[in-house]
Write a protein that binds this DNA or RNA. Structure first.
Lengths: 372, 372
DNA sequence: CTGTTAGCGCTTTCAC
DNA sequence: GTGAAAGCGCTAACAG
């Protein structure tokens, strides 16, 4: 049963009303309707304009965006390709990009590759065929500089994000992962006196060595730390959990771990809890990204914060601003919380996504650094 | 100094190559090019087709999606409006919808209202003006059945999601929140013997009473539980934290809390940890949604799982399948983990988003239920 | 099997 | 201040 109503809306007229219907109803030409709708480029007499607006309302006229896009050569659309918005980092990044896009009157087309290079290539082609005004790409473990790409990005202004190194011929936006990793390892060693700092490294679909790995290595070398195991994990909580278990089973067990993403840090956290380890006493953790969730783990995760809002804004801007630098590298900052051994007052909690600055940490040296 | 290269791609030719260029180059008509590109609707001789494909490759031709959309009356686009993809529930929901859309060859346009009704209305109009093939809307605290809507959804097939009750004139998809809340409260009372079960209720931008609140009330009434405070919170981790602190400061302190979302549960978890409470002994928690993150809290959150994948698929299907029921209500299920007092083997962890079934819980009655 | 052609709905230049 | 008209690039009759 049910009424013959289309069940898709409140049952108005609409569909199929074109600008010429409006023009006829208002007794004007289609050009005038255009001028009224777009508020330009020519002026319209107030009374005429009112008549047109009336007709629009009465007929329930909706301009056809596709026709407009065809004529103008732009649909006001931005594309975003990410590995996985199930990862809070990309979720927050995507949200920030959407906001930056909306501010410019653009809508956001989003696509997840699931960290699969084949899917990534397909989606990239699909997106490029849509006459987007711009394309922002976070590759699965690196920028997708393959054969597919050349034909694809020739047609759409493309920016790579989550890229710490420049890519010749493309604009890129990224955070300083090397410095962040350096800072993380350094903090664990110098502030908290660790001498066995492992790395829990996420592995994307591409092989390229991540700057977080080299940063961590450089820190250990510079600080003369000899023990530093590496475990590689898929970029999921579960991946961090499994690789974390592996790390915790080593003998001697690392006393500190730098996790290359919050997601991984959370998996490690769970593995540590299950192993009955106390954090940060038995195991100190610093992770990477600075997502909102990191603050709500227990203990709260010390993390290297990427300036997501700023990078998102820069990525969108880089599409349009002709003068934008080819490569923009953003500084990161250590958000000291409990998981590394810093003890902080409890009630410094701010609303989600405040992008706040860290409170000055109280230092808790763990033990003397050098082996006896 | 940069090269004069456009810096937007690998420097091919491209832009401005139309189908008639291809036709001229291949020595055929534009129709044939169309037939080759679209693989129909008329057959083309193999050799001709090859010549056309050649021309396409040589010229770097990319069909103009806007022109195609104008002609066909569809751009292959779905719109999704959600309150906040910073909320893992909506992030996972959006991801699932994108996958369902991609399977049908549609791309997904996503917009966040930030739980602001004004923004919501604006975005809704914007989306409706884009000649989308369909629109999926998760309103900020309820379906947006306002004045704006009538004119908007008349033109685009619209489905409301995250809606436990039907909305006259619209198709809706939702989870059985009432049953879920009932189940949660019942579990805390009957399995774990609590007699003071509070509710930590998220509040959207709309006033409407949430089915989770009535479900919880009904459970307490049916089970003859007298103590049951309610705290209202904004739908963020921080909101859960603040309202959670309030709940924990009550005397007598609730021994169990049902949180109306995982996000809120995580905020409460943090508040409880900071208060030095042991979970589940001093405070048992059951939350709602069943996001991946809930499993990685400590202790892992017992949660009422919404079948996100299934609902997402149903929402997309409802847009196209004429015969879809007006209202689809999906069952929820309790995922027993540690935060409620169920003790489970550790290593039952599956990869993220497995949508797995819970292991049979070991029951830990907490104390005799009735007051002396 | 292939070519010709009429629009899809809109913007905007050019005349009035 | 307003109208007429030329396409944007594509698809799909229809005619060969």
């Amino acid at each position: 049963m049910g009424s013959p109503m289309a069940m898709s809306g409140a049952g108005g007229p609409a569909r199929g009303v074109t600008r010429s219907d409006v023009a006829r109803y208002a007794g004007v030409s289609t050009a005038v309707v255009s001028y009224v709708v777009n508020n330009g480029p020519r002026p319209v007499a107030a009374t005429t304009a009112a008549r047109v607006r009336d007709a629009i309302a009465v007929l329930g006229y909706q301009p056809n965006a596709n026709a407009r896009a065809l004529k103008l050569g732009t649909a006001g659309l931005l594309g975003l390709l990410v590995p996985d918005t199930g990862n809070p980092f990309f979720a927050e990044y995507a949200l920030a990009i959407e906001q930056a896009a909306t501010q410019r009157g653009l809508a956001l087309l989003i696509a997840n590759s699931g960290s699969d290079l084949g899917v990534e290539a397909t989606l990239l082609t699909d997106l490029a065929n849509r006459q987007l005004d711009g394309l922002i790409v976070a590759g699965a473990g690196g920028p997708p500089v393959d054969s597919t790409l050349s034909g694809v990005t020739a047609v759409t202004p493309t920016v790579f994000v989550d890229t710490a190194s420049p890519v010749p011929g493309y604009r890129t936006v990224g955070a300083d992962k090397h410095a962040g990793a350096l800072q993380a390892a350094q903090h664990l060693v110098e502030v908290h006196g660790h001498d066995n700092v492992a790395l829990l490294m996420g592995r994307g679909a591409r092989h390229a060595t991540d700057e977080r790995e080299t940063g961590w290595r450089d820190a250990l070398r510079a600080l003369d730390v000899e023990r530093g195991e590496v475990a590689y994990a898929t970029f999921t909580r579960h991946g961090g959990y499994v690789a974390g278990q592996h790390l915790l089973a080593l003998r001697p067990r690392p006393t500190a771990v730098f996790a290359s993403s919050d997601l991984l840090g959370m998996g490690l956290l769970r593995a540590a809890h299950e192993a009955g380890l106390s954090i940060p006493d038995d195991l100190a953790i610093v992770s990477f990204d600075g997502t909102n969730q990191a603050e709500y783990c227990w203990p709260p995760l010390t993390t290297i914060r990427q300036p997501i809002q700023e990078m998102a804004a820069a990525a969108v801007a880089a599409i349009f601003d002709q003068a934008a630098p080819a490569h923009q590298l953003f500084p990161v900052s250590l958000l000291a919380r409990r998981s590394c051994g810093c003890s902080l007052p409890d009630s410094d909690l701010k609303p989600d996504r405040a992008g706040s600055n860290p409170a000055p940490p109280t230092r808790h040296p763990r033990k003397s650094r050098k082996r006896p």
